[in-house]
């Protein structure tokens, strides 16, 4: 009950604003002030989702989710491994850090022909885009988190005779968690965006592919149906990441 009250206090204004916006759009479309192919009526979008739930959820969403899951798993495992390597080796840091930053300057669309050349139209071209887009926040936040540890804590453990590995395990890892989760929350959403963009670039299934096909048919309701599902999915994934963060660090993070 207390949680619901808190949730309402935080989000009630936003919900109200969204509802008002949807009502305005509905009225504008129904009165013919805005053409349906520019912005569809919200009720039309809901109808499209209900009528096409089977292909949308079973055929397309499942494919997007699979691309997302594989891509995000690679991002998290690879990102943490790279951040830890940079933390332990100055040479790795000097080689890899600029490359990770530069990877964010590359326009993804420009890379699409290369990904198609490398991976064809298989799932791996979509996974590659997912990884490329979500890698940066995980690597940077984990690396910064590992480096953020106060020198005094390190010295205290050294004075107890701790080894470098013990200090890493007992000090650096827990200290890095708040920063890691900031990156994790961004990356989880970016990964979903990455999977969708990957499908735009070349696919035969997935919500990104579906929205692009609907766009080609000037079916705005179909496009918005896919966008709505992706948005809900993004919110759920972000909520899951926030829940994980709270479970892990909330108790002590909110300190003094």
């Amino acid at each position: 009950m207390k949680q619901i009250k808190k949730w309402l206090q935080t989000y009630s204004l936003f919900c109200l604003f969204t509802i008002i916006l949807l009502v305005i759009v509905e009225v504008l479309v129904r009165k013919g002030i805005v053409p349906n192919f520019i912005i569809p009526a919200p009720t039309g979008v809901v109808r499209t989702i209900v009528e096409n739930w089977k292909p949308l959820l079973l055929e397309h969403l499942s494919v997007t989710m699979l691309e997302f899951l594989i891509g995000f798993a690679i991002t998290v495992i690879g990102g943490i491994a790279l951040a830890v390597s940079m933390f332990f080796s100055k040479i790795v840091e000097k080689i890899v850090y600029p490359a990770v930053v530069i990877s964010q300057m590359i326009p993804i669309i420009a890379l699409s022909p290369i990904f198609v050349m490398w991976f064809g139209y298989s799932i791996w071209s979509k996974v590659a885009v997912t990884v490329l887009i979500s890698f940066f926040p995980i690597v940077v936040s984990t690396y910064d988190g590992l480096k953020s540890c106060d020198k005094e804590y390190v010295e205290l453990l050294h004075s107890m005779g701790a080894t470098r590995f013990q200090i890493f395990k007992k000090l650096h890892i827990p200290m890095a968690l708040p920063s890691f989760f900031s990156g994790f929350k961004l990356a989880i959403v970016f990964a979903l965006v990455g999977a969708t963009i990957g499908e735009w670039l070349g696919a035969s299934k997935g919500l990104g592919y579906y929205s692009r096909r609907m766009s080609g048919n000037l079916n705005a309701e179909g496009v918005f149906a896919a966008i709505t599902i992706l948005t809900i999915l993004g919110i759920l994934l972000f909520a899951l990441a926030s829940w994980l963060e709270k479970r892990t660090i909330y108790k002590w993070k909110d300190t003094d």
Binding site: E152, Y153, E155, L156, S159, M160, K170, P174, W252
Partner: peptide, 17 residues
């Protein structure tokens, strides 16, 4: 050598987690 004596720094430096 390191680890031979007990050391208490100025700040409590308790691990918050």
């Amino acid at each position: 050598a390191l680890g031979d004596v007990g050391y208490m720094p100025q700040k409590d430096l308790l691990l918050p987690w």
